[in-house]
């Protein structure tokens, strides 16, 4: 698959609604993970069963410590579950990782200070052995995608926090992974920047046809972005509720004032409260 087609293809509306074309990309069955720590075992994930389909935008929301990061890291094969099964693109997570199935965006942008923005975005491309010409082409494409064209020659410290985070998203988009995993990518940014980035992210998702797993603390963010919202509760981390969004694909920012939006947000809030009440 080359970038030309992935970035330009507009998501076929029919694909998502036609049940025959639904394809499971990530599937967790009774997933369990217990960390052995010096203070004894920590049950981070308990009995997680979830299916994520191609093209889904799935948000994970819940209080801190409920295992959102841990679950995302399991998908990325950065943690190894202690029970249950997990498949990514029909493979084990580690096989998927070795096939470079996903791009991962961490909470901190984590750009290399000694590389320019363009060279930061080239990092995965260099590692994966793309040709020089291909690297240049892709860097320009993804810079445009995150609206950072013209900033390729700048160094990270010359960019604002929001721009740095966009650059790190561009870095995750530069290679042909059809899954994008994002762990509270906008957590450290202020509300206004965040709104803008959310809007951009939706556009980007529509243009690239990626499957996105997105961890957040914010109810409006989760509702605004997602096709599916996974509400989690802590100690042990488990899924409390899975909400399929009824919002349309096209989402201007003021959709957040619509009754539908408010209703979904309400259900998420209820889920979070109930999950919290358990302990």
């Amino acid at each position: 698959m080359n970038m030309e087609t992935t970035t330009q293809a507009i998501r076929p509306e029919a694909a998502a609604s036609d049940p025959a074309s639904v394809e499971t990309v990530i599937e967790a069955r009774n997933l369990d993970l217990t960390f052995q720590t010096n203070d004894g075992p920590v049950h981070a994930l308990k009995d997680i069963s979830l299916e994520i389909n191609r093209g889904d935008f799935v948000s994970f929301i819940g209080p801190s410590g409920c295992g959102k990061t841990t679950f995302l890291r399991c998908i990325a094969a950065l943690e190894t579950p202690t029970g249950g099964s997990l498949s990514v693109n029909g493979m084990t997570p580690d096989e998927a990782r070795r096939n470079r199935a996903y791009g991962y965006v961490f909470q901190a942008a984590g750009l290399y200070p000694w590389r320019s923005i363009a060279k930061n975005i080239k990092l995965p491309l260099e590692i994966m052995g793309y040709s020089r010409a291909e690297q240049e082409k892709r860097v320009n494409q993804v810079l445009e995608l995150v609206e950072l064209s013209g900033f390729g020659g700048k160094f990270p410290w010359q960019l604002s926090g929001g721009m740095q985070q966009r650059a790190s998203i561009a870095r995750a988009l530069a290679f042909d992974a059809d899954i994008l995993l994002m762990d509270e990518p906008f957590g450290a940014l202020d509300e206004i920047v965040r709104d803008h980035l959310n809007e951009q992210l939706l556009k980007l998702w529509a243009r690239t046809n990626k499957t996105i797993g997105f961890v957040t603390h914010s109810i409006p963010e989760a509702v605004y972005l997602s096709t599916k919202i996974v509400v989690m509760s802590p100690r042990p981390g488990r899924i409390h509720d899975v909400i399929d969004s009824t919002l349309p694909k096209e989402r201007p920012l003021d959709i957040r004032d619509s009754p539908e939006f408010i209703e979904i947000a309400h259900r998420v809030r209820e889920g979070l409260r109930a999950g919290h009440g358990d302990d």
Partner: peptide
Amino acid sequence: AMQLDLLKTYNANTNQGFWKLRLPSSM
């Protein structure tokens, strides 16, 4: 750890980790 995890998500090998991350970090 985050920097090392990032390279792992690219399936980078030890050599690449050395030249692209560890060595420049050590300057």
